[in-house]
């Protein structure tokens, strides 16, 4: 049995570029490519040293899996990640709409 120290992957916690690479398995070049085409956004893109909200780790890990499992090149990967983010965004909007419709309870 192990008791874990738990850390929120929340946008309020910041990760450096190096940390995000290490935790996601992406190389720095791959991560920069994803930022360049807008698939993952740093907190402040004008800053000299990028930092990322910890919730971006979820996206970055997904990017790593997609590249590995679908054997994607960097363009394909950027497109896939951007589309998946849009899907996640839409699903969250849907959840919000469903919560506001009166009727039988639905899952979150």
């Amino acid at each position: 049995m192990m008791t874990g120290q738990v850390e929120w992957l929340h946008e309020e916690r910041e990760l450096s570029l190096a940390e995000l690479c290490e935790l996601s398995g992406l190389s720095e070049a791959e991560l920069r490519a994803l930022v360049d085409c807008g698939a993952i956004a740093p907190t402040d893109s004008d800053a000299r040293d990028w930092t990322f909200g910890a919730d971006r780790l979820v996206v970055a890990r997904s990017a790593f899996r997609l590249r590995r499992d679908f054997e994607l090149d960097s363009q394909g990967l950027a497109l896939a990640v951007a589309l998946l983010e849009r899907v996640r965004d839409l699903e969250e909007q849907l959840r919000g709409l469903r919560a506001r419709i009166p009727g039988t309870p639905r899952s979150g």
Partner: peptide, 9 residues
Amino acid sequence: TEGQRLRLA
């Protein structure tokens, strides 16, 4: 809340 992620290092 729903979908929140936690990391146990």
